[in-house]
Design a protein around this nucleic acid. Sequence first.
DNA 1: ACCTGAACACCGTTCAAGT
DNA 2: ACCTGAACACCGTTCAAGT
Lengths: 198, 198
Amino acid sequence: LLDSGGEGGLTFQALSKRLATGPGAIYWHVTNKSDLLTASCDAIVAKALNAASTTGSPEEALRRLALGMFDIIDEHPWVGSSLNLALGQLPMVRIFDRVGQHIRALGVPAEKEWTTASALVSYILGVGGQNAANAQMGRQKGLDRTDFLGEASKLWSQLDSDEYPFVSGIASQLSTHDDRADFLAGIDFILVGIADLI
Amino acid sequence: LLDSGGEGGLTFQALSKRLATGPGAIYWHVTNKSDLLTASCDAIVAKALNAASTTGSPEEALRRLALGMFDIIDEHPWVGSSLNLALGQLPMVRIFDRVGQHIRALGVPAEKEWTTASALVSYILGVGGQNAANAQMGRQKGLDRTDFLGEASKLWSQLDSDEYPFVSGIASQLSTHDDRADFLAGIDFILVGIADLI
DNA sequence: ACCTGAACACCGTTCAAGT
DNA sequence: ACCTGAACACCGTTCAAGT
C-alpha cells in the first residue's frame, strides 16, 4: 500500500480490506497509525542495514551504508518522509548505531563521536526527505523522475535572474545531474571534514 | 495555529473560526491545504533569509545563513517538517538561491556549484527535520526539550550493548550536547570538504 | 486471546446560493 | 469579486459484543 500510494495510501480501511478483516482488528497488533508507519519503516531500514556489508575501510563501509540508505529510500520514497523520527525510535537507533560504529572505526576522538555521527545521519535523512518530496510531487503530476526534473528545471530557468541569480542560471544542472553521485559527493564532503579533525 | 499546535493544529475549521468566516471562504484565496502550508513556510523562510546579513567572508555568511535557518526552525518546529518540498516550490528556491550565491562567492568551480549547494541545503533541511521530530515528540509527551532529551538518553543507555554498541555507549552525549553547536560543526565539515575542491 | 463492525469525532474539499 | 454554510467522502480510533 505504501509503495503504490505513498503515505496517504496506507489506510486502516484499505489495509483491513486487504487483510480481509475489520479496522478494529489491526488495533490489537499496533497502537497507532504512527506506530504502524514506524514499524514499516523499521522493516525497510533493517533490510538496508543488513544488506550493506561492513568490510573494507571505514570510509568505504560508510559510503556503502549511505548509498544503501539512498537506494532503499529511492525504491520506497515514503520511507524518506517517514524517517524524520525522534531519536528514541528504533529505525533511528539502528541507523545511528551503524553510522557510529564506522565513525568509531575511523578513529574519531570519543568526544566528537556524537557530533560526527549526527552530521552524517542528518545529511542522509535530509537527502532522503528531498528525494521523497520530489517523488511525491512527480507521482501527483503523473510524471516520472526525468520528466519531473525537466519540468522543475524549466521552472527554474524562467525565474527572474535579478531576484534569483543563482537558481535561474543553474537550471540546466538540475535536469542533468546524477542524484546518486551528488548524494555521494555530499557524503565525501563530510568525510573530508571529519578526516580533518583526526 | 501552527506554532501552538504543530502541523495538525492548522485546520480549515479552526482557521475559519479564528477568521470569523466559513471554511469555504479560505478556498477563494488558496487552492489547497498543502498550498496554505507552503505559503506559511515561505513567509517564515523569507523572514529568516532577510534577517541573515550577507557581509563578511562567504564562509561567515554561509554559517550565519545556516544558523538563521536553524534558529527559525527551532522557533517554529512545524517549518522543519513542512520544508521537505519539491525543488519547484518557492521556499526551496529561495534557500537554494541564497546558499548558491555564497557558494559562488566561495569560488567553487561552476560545474560543482549544484552539487555543493545541494549538499548544504540537504544537510540544513535534515537537521531541521530532526529538530522538528524531537519537538513534536516532546510536545506529545508534554515534555520540554531538556526533559525529552534526558528521556531519550535514558532509553539509549538501556539498550543492549551487544546489539547497539555505539548508541548504548554514547547515551550521555545525547543529553548534554548542544544542538546549535553540533549543527554548526556539521556545516563546517561540509565547508572543509568544499574548500578541499577549490 | 483475538476479531467484528457499527459508531464517533473530525478532516479536507465542494458547490449552489447568496451579497 | 468574495463569502456562506450545508453537504460529501473519507479518515483514525473506540468499544461493546462476539468467538
